[in-house]
Amino acid sequence: MDKDAGSIERVFNSGAGAIVTKSIGLKPRNGFPNPTVIELEHGILNAIGLPNPGIDNFKEELLKLKKLNIPVIGSIFGSDYKEFVTLAEKMQNYGVNALELNLSCPHAKGYGLEIGCDPNLVKEITFKVKKSTKIPVFVKISPNLANITEVAKSAEEGNADGIVAINTVKAMKIDLELQMPVLSNKIGGYSGNAVKPIGIRCVYEISKNIDIPIIGVGGITTGKDAIEYFMAGASAVQVGSAIYYRGLDVFKKICDEIKIWMKHHEYNNLSDLIGAAHK
């Protein structure tokens, strides 16, 4: 629900505070053949392969959203800093409020995680994008890393305004009858309930080592899930798969549940909860 202005408007009207776009690249890209998305027992497995219409075609969607005053975080992916800078400048010109650098897609060759696993590249790309734009820049990082803290730190050193953690967890499903992986790309990224403890751990570890804000993401379905991320050190959260589990009004539901929890526990400011688990 992040591909076109109409969908983004609907998600915004369902209670989301801001919308992160589908990751956009320089040129149109079809992504992988189906099957690209399947449901498993405890989560959703996908390998869509970064399909997107290309930044120039995406312009009209962004301009529509700008007119409607909907806060948009433009997600971009590229194969080197030059591509990221071009995309970032265009996104800024088309009116997005912030940028998210996809340095963590687990299933597209030459992009995402393949770049995002190298702390030096992460620092370089972040630094160059920051230098050429004025809007906040967030770096989305992967849980599929042994050196996640190091990568987060290098984004901070590149002057990132925030870290987004986590992207999906590398995973596979094999069909027993056909004795083959179900996804056409074989390997995909796992999201939903099952990955929440992984996301919580990542946010907790990262927030111990950096000073910039963290946007927590991974398996957030209820207000309590969001609060757990706040306690781990997140200042905001992203929600995706939960649209399937609880419907489009999941955003409003989560906000209401956070308020109820805070009231029961006599909290007036959400900021008092951020990093609470680090005591």
Partner: peptide, 11 residues
């Protein structure tokens, strides 16, 4: 209903 690929109109 999750990927958004087939959306028409306002989502």
């Amino acid at each position: 209903g999750i990927c958004g690929q087939c959306c028409v109109g306002k989502g």
